[in-house]
């Protein structure tokens, strides 16, 4: 048990515990915030801070092994797909015509009307 080991142990402790705290805060936000558009942001706390901190902590615990490689692959995957899924949920809600409530004194931007049917880009077209 030399100084480097102690340092790594303490570091991974700190990362995992703070990651746990952020995970709880994120889901608390998902529960407490007033409406759907605000809750999106609560979920993204779990998805960014919680995931990054916990995966780092576990990587340090695992050391230089194949486990670390798998953890990094999981981390990269969550890092890319998490925002994409959140964007998909928000975009689906917007496309159905639901607008977020605005704070006082602010007017929200209105999305451009959907482009007329674009044959080679079916996912971008209108709903009807």
């Amino acid at each position: 048990m030399n100084a480097v080991d102690v340092f790594l142990e303490v570091l991974s402790w700190a990362l995992i515990v703070s990651g746990s705290v952020f995970v709880i805060i994120g889901s608390l936000g998902l529960w407490r915030l007033p409406d759907f558009w605000a809750r999106l942001h609560g979920a993204s706390v779990t998805e960014s801070a919680g995931v990054i901190l916990l995966i780092w902590g576990m990587c340090i615990q695992a050391g230089f092994t194949l486990i670390t490689v798998k953890l990094i692959i999981i981390g990269i995957f969550l890092f890319i797909t998490g925002p994409t899924a959140t964007h998909a949920v928000a975009n689906a809600a917007l496309v159905t015509g639901w607008r977020p409530s605005e704070a006082e004194g602010l007017t929200g931007a209105e999305p451009e009307p959907l482009r007329p049917e674009n044959e080679d880009d079916a996912l971008d077209g209108g709903e009807e």
Partner: peptide, 14 residues
């Protein structure tokens, strides 16, 4: 767009 969504507090909607 993904970086905007990844930072909590801002989300790319469209």
């Amino acid at each position: 767009a993904n970086s905007i969504t990844l930072t909590p507090g801002t989300i790319t909607v469209e």
